[in-house]
Computed example of a mutant assay.
Amino acid sequence: MKKLLFILVILSVLSCKESDNKTAITEKAAQEFTDASIEITPVLTDSISVRALDYGNGNYWYAGSKGSYGSIDAATGSATRGVIKLNEDEEVEFRSIATTPNYTYILTAGNPALVYKITQKDGSVEHVYTEVEDRVFYDSMKFWNDEEGIAMGDPMGGCFSVIKTYDGGKTWGKLQCTEMPDYVPGEAAFAASNSNIKILGDQVWLVTGGAMARILYSDNRGSNWQIFNTPFIAGGEMTGIYAVDFYDKDLGVIIGGDWNKKEDNTYNKAITRNGGKSWNLISNGDGPGYCSDIIFIPDTGGKELLAVGTPGIWWSKDQGATWKKMSEEGFYTVRMIDSSTGYLAGNNRISSFTISRK
């Protein structure tokens, strides 16, 4: 028995060392790359604008203007397409999407706010939520699982609009303003890439723009909220934070800028190492200007970032300290499933891409 216990201890130590070594190799490799390039391949071309893109069960799901939605098989590139219309003459615009193990949820921007639930197995579509109000405008939506989801919209009645479901969209509840932090008049959010919400475990981060560029944070899935300030550009109608991503509960990035001055690369990129409580500017005055989306590239130890916007695509190997512009081709949003492959969505097109490093 003692011999068996000794062997198990040794194996456990070796396993931990192997795991730690893999992490070290990943992080070291990410740091040592000096250059990268991107190859972009058009997959779907259409007269639609696509700002909502997500991945689940081997498919990239998208939703966009003219009531369009669909999926693209990540392995084959084959696409399915659908269209939702209120009637023959009235089209809706989707700017939010969330995939779960079995469903895909899509949400319109503007009045009326409509949520549809797509069953991935058979493609059936169910209308599960309606909100009618002149001021309604939802910006982003995320789901933790098949049943529980959250969406964020522009302020109404003294606070940001936040709706939640606990039953797969059958019923939705809007948080009361007494449950939400106060907002500053002129503060809003941007439905530019479905990326101004990030969920991770029980944590939720919402990002704002306009008069203020702030973080609304909850550590209990939206039951209670705190406000964190950022050093971001703010004060203009189209200034502020457009996208947020977190690698883990502590390490996160935000990006945005001024949509009216897209070349301005000051006060538009920041990083946190304490879960969003405080933020430090990165490459201020260098690297990308206005961008609508940013992600930590998977399997790179939290080192590599990819930022996209209408002005182009940028890559960073060192958490935003330095950047390389990889392409002049503009997109709204990006998703990746590993360190090398992903999809981009934008105006009139969805494209796959591959990153090569040296």
Rank of each mutant, 00 (worst) to 15 (best):
K262D: 03
M238T: 15
L305P: 05
K198P: 02
I40T: 10
Y217F: 15
P298N: 01
D202R: 07
N224K: 12
I199P: 05
I355Y: 05
I297G: 10
M152S: 14
I297W: 08
K17R: 11
I255W: 02
T310R: 14
S68M: 13
E133D: 15
H127G: 02
L344G: 08
T272H: 09
D122Q: 00
P288T: 10
G82S: 08
Y332R: 11
E147M: 14
I241C: 06
S47R: 13
S161C: 12
T108V: 11
A345Q: 10
G240K: 07
D122E: 02
T165P: 02
A189P: 06
G158W: 01
L175H: 09
S12W: 11
N145K: 01
I118H: 00
K2S: 03
Y116R: 09
N87V: 11
T272N: 10
A188V: 13
F160S: 07
I84H: 06
P288I: 08
F143G: 01
Y129Q: 10
G256A: 02
S195I: 00
D122L: 01
S292L: 05
V162M: 09
S218E: 04
Y290D: 04
T34R: 14
W314D: 08
G169N: 05
W144R: 04
I84A: 09
M326G: 06
